[in-house]
Write a protein that binds this DNA or RNA. Structure first.
Length: 216
DNA sequence: AAGTGTCA
DNA sequence: CATC
């Protein structure tokens, strides 16, 4: 039987996080097995690695990328690079599965024709976190950000356009997708220190996929 | 600078 | 708030 990969949550409404942002609870669940396979393949080609902030401090997550552009951080700063500094090779191709998932999710929030050219993969183990920040290394902020959560639950910190606004805490579960763009595109966000736990598929980790249009 | 440590 |  022919079935719609997105049917599980195709009819559910986004949980609003702002005028042009929302949480699509469980949106990626129908694709979970294919997503985990794709992540494994990506990590074989572009291994997980620990990045350093420009200040020289190690980040607590492990990172890799796929797509035309990969986000990288070191003492030179934050930037997108076309080649993996670890291997010298181009980043693995962005799987069509992921491209379509991101396009469908963006469409649910009113962003048509989203075309990701970068996917940052962050792996959190218990204790790992991501401080409040803006995604502002992309060449244009016209396209939204699409974030896919897999594995252990996390508290998403969802702030305002100004750093001093106290962020809301939103629990993100395996299969959840968050989309933000337009007036919400530069909102500060982060992830609270991951609590210990074991996920049936992923064990003691959370993997987040962040899809972006980084180039021209 | 998406970091941590420190001070109020 | 300091930090190649």
């Amino acid at each position: 039987m022919q079935h719609d990969l997105f049917s599980t949550n195709g009819g559910s409404e986004p949980i609003s996080l702002g005028a042009q942002s929302g949480l699509l609870r469980g949106f990626a669940l129908p694709l979970q097995d294919q997503l985990l396979d794709a992540i494994q393949d990506i990590a074989l080609e572009a291994p997980w690695r620990q990045l350093f902030t420009p200040g020289g401090k190690p980040m607590s997550v492990r990172t890799t990328n796929c797509g035309t552009w990969g986000w990288h951080s070191d003492r030179q700063g934050y930037r997108y690079v076309a080649h993996d500094p670890h291997t010298g090779k181009p980043w693995p191709q962005l799987p069509e599965l992921l491209q379509q998932l991101a396009r469908r999710a963006a469409s649910q929030l009113g962003f048509s024709d989203f075309e990701a050219d970068a996917c940052l993969l962050n792996c959190y183990e218990p204790g790992a976190q991501m401080g409040l920040h803006q995604d502002r290394d992309e060449q244009s902020f016209a396209a939204p950000i699409v974030s896919v959560s897999l594995g252990l639950p996390a508290q998403f910190l969802w702030g305002g356009t100004q750093r001093n606004e106290r962020p809301a805490r939103i629990e993100l579960l395996h299969g959840d997708v968050v989309v933000w763009g337009g007036v919400d595109r530069l909102r500060f966000h982060g992830v609270a220190k991951l609590a210990a736990g074991k996920h049936p598929q992923l064990g003691a980790q959370r993997i987040n996929l962040t899809l972006r249009h980084a180039g021209n």
